[in-house]
């Protein structure tokens, strides 16, 4: 990109370096044949990928992470979409307050939420850690479920739903044959965002971990603290590849910038 803004362009280049270069180093290190994080890497091998995929704490926590992310994303949508409908279509007193409440998990620090749930639900109320995690992750995704599907709902001309009613469709029939199909891009965006948010979450998953149920990021954090070998680089590269795949899927369906940047270009 040629530019007539030399200062802005220099700062921008610096920004991209800080954002992306460390990730490149992780990728390079993952393929080392040596057994440390030394740079430059000592030779080329895939041994650390094999090690990562056969290291049980990683594989079992990956499964835990996926289960948690899928269930809580489904829950957040199942509970959040009706709220979005009530806010945008229903006659609800105090709409702004209801919407504010459902967006509020965004403004409270996640670590504070994690501590609250740990203290009150696990220690205080005796829920097990999976149930508590499910509560926490679902609540954390409410803002996406309510706001993203709400934004998508706001784009649907209410007259379209009126038209269906006028043509003889009941309220339920109208929702399933008109509203829901038109809402699909919004639902898909919300689901992807929710899944990613849950999968990557550290603060909640960290505070609410138990010996039997820990998520992958928490296990990785622990591992990095105690060991200094490239196995984490290998698992990082695998996560990176999966994330790229998610980004490509998003781009092919709704549009990458629309899903993750909230940007309509």
């Amino acid at each position: 990109m040629r530019t007539r803004h030399p200062i802005a362009a220099s700062l921008a280049v610096l920004g991209y370096i800080v954002m992306l270069v460390p990730i490149l180093f992780v990728v390079v290190t993952a393929f080392t044949a040596g057994s440390t994080l030394r740079f430059p890497p000592e030779g080329f091998s895939l041994r650390w990928f094999e090690a990562a995929l056969t290291y049980t704490p990683f594989t079992s926590s990956l499964v835990s992470s996926l289960i948690l992310a899928v269930i809580s994303a489904v829950l957040a949508l199942a509970l959040g979409v009706p709220v979005a409908l009530a806010i945008h279509r229903g006659r609800l007193p105090g709409k702004a307050l209801v919407e504010g409440l459902f967006l509020s998990p965004l403004i409270v620090p996640e670590l504070v939420v994690g501590l609250a749930l740990y203290q009150q639900l696990m220690v205080g109320f005796g829920l097990d850690n999976f149930q508590t995690l499910l509560f926490g992750h679902t609540v954390l995704m409410f803002p996406y479920a309510v706001r993203v599907t709400g934004a998508s709902l706001a784009l649907i001309d209410p007259a379209v739903e009126d038209a269906a009613r006028g043509l003889g469709a009941s309220a339920g029939r109208t929702f399933f044959s008109i509203t829901l199909p038109l809402l699909r891009p919004g639902l898909f965006s919300a689901a992807l965002l929710s899944f990613i948010t849950s999968f990557n979450n550290v603060p909640l998953s960290l505070l609410l971990q138990s010996r039997d149920f820990r998520t992958l990021p928490v296990v990785m954090l622990d591992y990095v603290q105690q060991n200094y070998d490239p196995i984490v680089a290998a698992i990082s590269v695998l996560i990176l590849a999966a994330t790229v795949l998610v980004a490509v899927i998003a781009e092919r369906t709704v549009g990458f910038a629309r899903v993750f940047g909230g940007i309509n270009r």
């Binding site: 920004g15 991209y16 954002m19 992306l20 270069v21 460390p22 990730i23 490149l24 180093f25 992780v26 990613i196 999968f199 990557n200 550290v202 990021p217 990785m220 954090l221 990095v224 984490v232 680089a233 990082s236 996560i239 990176l240 994330t243 790229v244 998610v246 980004a247 781009e251 990458f256 910038a257 993750f260 940047g261």
Partner: peptide
Amino acid sequence: ALAIFPLLLSSVVRTFG
């Protein structure tokens, strides 16, 4: 897209870099 992409990537992976 390159500037947005890191938002999707685990902060553990990014910090590990």
